[in-house]
Structure formats: structure tokens, C-alpha cells
Computed example of a mutant assay.
Amino acid sequence: MNRQKFITSLMLGLAGLAASAKKVSSLAPSPEVGGGCDGCNLIYEGMPSNLSNKAYLPGWTAGGKKLIVEGTVYRKDGHTVAANVILYIYHTDSKGYYSASPGQVNGKRHGHLRGWLKTGCDGKYTFYTTMPAPYPERNNPAHIHPVIKEPGINEYYIDEFQFDNDPLLTDSLRSKTENRGGSGIIKLSKNASGILVCKRDIILGLNVPYYR
């Protein structure tokens, strides 16, 4: 084989390898949005068939320190409101446990203080609950877990709701937040009825791995 034929044969072989690699790549499954999430699948356990942009968690009428959280969900541009987005939240009870209610079947791992919302055309949401407590004998700040489910995208978590005045929320912990969906550190105030209120806007896909 002369030099020219050898080079031609080599180039054809490399082109074939590149085409095969591209085909294999196109057949490989895309990574999950968010990079996976332990327990996020529990969003579907016990989810009501009809959701609104307001949710009352079981603790709201059972005593404890009442808390109202509201905000707006935006598309990744941070300006366009996002409709039909499900927000699932769950948190500990007043003793710091994910306690299940008597006879609870669905989502026991997340306890009974859990709820679902679905944004309307204005992207707004509000949920009514009670203040969570930190885990017993640990230094984790009190928090509320949020999971997002957008149409056509798998469920994924965003940064926990945490409270700016929590003494357990140290500067070191603040610096380690991922800001998934935007900052989850919220400031508490009281409304005219003396109930704790706070606001958090959510930006879909912000700092969320593999978001598309």
C-alpha cells in the first residue's frame, strides 16, 4: 500500500470510529436533572389529585408556632413567572423529628408535616405550617425541605428553606450553600396577627446540575 492509500484508509477508519462514538453517545441516557436526589421520589406518595397554589400542612391547626411562607416561582431567566410547577415541602416537628401520624402509610420517612402546591399563571405560592425544630443533639439548623417538579422534567431538590436568625446557621454553613433555585435563607417577620411570615422566590434551574 502506497503512502496516499494508507492515509486515505486511515482517515476513513477514523471517520468511522467518530461516527460510531457519536451514535453511542446519542444512545446514552441523559443525566437526571439535579444529579439525583435521595427521597425526592416520595413527592408522589400521597400527592392529592387536585393542587392549588396554597397548602395547609397538618401542623397549622395543631398548635405550635405558626409560619406562613410565600413567594413566586420564575423561569431560569429570573423574570418570567412559571405556571404549573409543583412544590413539595416537608419538615420536622416541634421536637426535631420527622414523625409520622397514626396510621400514616404514604411518605412516612418524611413524617406527617408535608404538603404540595402548584403554581398558577402568576407563579405565586403560599404554604401555612409551623416552625420546624433542629434535629435533636445535632448542630443542623432548622429547615424545610423543598422538591420541585416541572412539567416534562424529573423531580429535583433545591436549597432548603433556612432561617436567617437561626444561631445554628453559622457563617461557615452559609458559605457552603449551593443556592440551587436561589438562596433558601429567609428572614422572618410578624404580620398584624403576630404570625411569623417570610418570603422566598424560586428560580427554576438556577445552579441545578444538568438542567435543560
Rank of each mutant, 00 (worst) to 15 (best):
N207Q: 10
P31Y: 11
Q162Y: 10
K76M: 05
Q162M: 15
G16P: 10
K190G: 04
L204R: 00
A100R: 03
E155G: 04
D166G: 10
D122C: 08
T170R: 02
R138P: 03
N106H: 15
R75D: 10
R138A: 13
F161T: 10
I203G: 04
P48T: 08
C121G: 01
I86P: 00
G63Y: 13
L12P: 01
E70Y: 05
G39L: 10
M131F: 14
L14V: 14
T126R: 11
S49T: 15
T177K: 10
G39S: 11
L27G: 06
A15K: 00
N179R: 07
L14D: 01
Y98T: 07
L206N: 01
K176A: 13
A28Y: 14
Y97N: 14
L87V: 11
D38I: 12
P209V: 09
S172Y: 14
C37W: 02
M1L: 10
S26I: 02
M47R: 06
R138H: 11
C40I: 13
G34N: 06
G16F: 11
G184K: 05
T80S: 13
I202D: 00
G107W: 03
G39R: 00
V73Q: 01
I203L: 05
E137I: 12
S193I: 00
S9L: 13
E150F: 08
G64E: 04
S94W: 06
L27I: 07
K5E: 15
L51P: 08
G111L: 04
P146H: 02
D77W: 03
I203D: 03
S172T: 11
R114H: 12
R114C: 09
E178P: 05
N191L: 14
Y128T: 02
N139K: 07
I186C: 14
I185L: 11
T92C: 06
S9N: 05
N106L: 08
P132T: 03
D166S: 08
G111E: 06
A83G: 07
K190F: 10
L67A: 02
R75Q: 14
G115L: 05
P167S: 07
A55Q: 04
C121M: 07
I186Y: 09
G39K: 04
Y97D: 13
G78H: 08
I89G: 03
A18G: 06
R109E: 08
G205E: 04
N2S: 15
G107I: 08
P29R: 04
I68C: 02
K149V: 05
C37H: 04
K108G: 05
I203R: 09
P31L: 09
M47I: 04
H143C: 08
K66A: 00
V73A: 03
N41F: 15
N84F: 02
A28G: 06
Y44Q: 08
T126Q: 09
Y44K: 10
R212K: 12
I195N: 01
I43W: 07
Y97P: 10
L173T: 08
A21C: 10
C37K: 00
S101C: 11
P29I: 13
Y88M: 01
K176I: 12
G78R: 03
S25Q: 07
Y210A: 03
M11H: 00
G35V: 13
V24F: 14
I202C: 02
T61E: 11
K23T: 08
K22L: 13
I158H: 02
Q104D: 12
L17D: 00
I86W: 00
G63R: 03
D159M: 09
P132F: 09
P136K: 01
G194D: 01
R109N: 11
